[in-house]
Design a protein around this nucleic acid. Structure first.
Lengths: 175, 175
DNA sequence: TTCTAACCGTAGGAACCCTACGTTTCGAGG
DNA sequence: CCTCGAAACGTAGGGTTCCTACGGTTAGAA
């Protein structure tokens, strides 16, 4: 159990981070987040050793939510539902793009969590014959990276749905 | 006609940039490129007011190459060939990812050039019935953004081909 | 050879990242 | 209620990169 002041500072940092990431994007200065939270930059680094850790912690709950895959329904239906949720996720959490799609070879934990979820869905679809068996979770995530490149205007939802639909189409066997 | 020394410096900068982008990636310090070229950082900024301009100029020739689309063959065949070239493009010019897929609403010229090429291909495929008519060039480019998120190891070519194949499959009508 | 517009480098401010180090404070145990 | 040490804190500063202001230098036309 950490000290009470440490816990409070951590919470304040996460709150500021969520706000700043939403307003200024993923590249906002960490010193700005620290200032908003009323703590020094050193405290931020003590709690979150690098930017990635702060981003991951900020969205930890949402990532866990997205990692849960209901057990009912066919693989293709599960995928369709998951994609809907993922699109909403991408729309509201633009700062996570860098984290999920970093070209580096070492996956951040958040990426692994989502890959696991996709793996469960693909496995189920493979078993019940509703999904093709020649794609893996990383392929799906790579295709969805495009969600973070779409222009940030009113056309976003339409384009995003079309992109997700494209992915779903390409994965389903029924056709 | 600019002065001879200005032309030489510009050429030296482009040569250094090509080398540095290939070795160190898109985020290499501009001062390093300037030093390699034997000029000062101010000279670099005078020729290329921002990083984007330098990247675009460095790969201008290759982008123009990729913008040329042969007139023969069906739309789907043209698309297949173009995708092969684009994959090779992505493999050798990783620094261009940021430029082609910047989320901002204002397209850099290089992006527009490729969108035009894709548009010609899609239009042809729509005319001859080999390509679906409900996708636009920006959709295709968004799907291909995933190429820049793949891990930089030996599995790259395989994953890249699979991704491009997925895009092609999803666009062709013959099935 | 002269002269000026174009080009160049030096120098430095500003923003950000990250760490070393001395100080303060919480809260468990007496 | 006090003591006291571990844990947490902030200040300060070095390093890097971006970008610009300004005065010196040079190419090349007349």
């Amino acid at each position: 159990m950490p000290r009470a002041d440490a816990r409070a500072n951590r919470a304040a940092l996460l709150a500021s981070a969520a706000q700043r990431f939403a307003i200024d994007g993923a590249d906002v200065a960490l010193e700005k987040i620290a200032r908003d939270a009323g703590v020094s930059i050193a405290t931020l680094y003590r709690h979150f050793p690098h930017r990635e850790a702060l981003v991951a912690a900020t969205y930890a709950r949402e990532i866990e939510d997205l990692a849960e895959v209901p057990d009912d329904g066919s693989g293709s239906v599960a995928l369709a539902r998951w994609l809907l949720r993922f699109v909403e996720f991408a729309r509201t959490k633009r700062a996570l793009g860098d984290l999920l799609h970093a070209p580096g070879a070492d996956h951040p934990p958040a990426r692994g969590v989502l890959l696991d979820a996709l793996d469960r869905i693909l496995t189920r679809g493979r078993a019940d014959g509703t999904l093709r068996d020649d794609r893996d979770p990383a392929d799906v995530l790579a295709l969805l990276a495009g969600l973070w490149t779409l222009p940030d205007d009113d056309t976003w939802p339409v384009r995003a749905d079309r992109l997700a639909g494209f992915v779903l189409d390409g994965l389903t066997t029924t056709r």
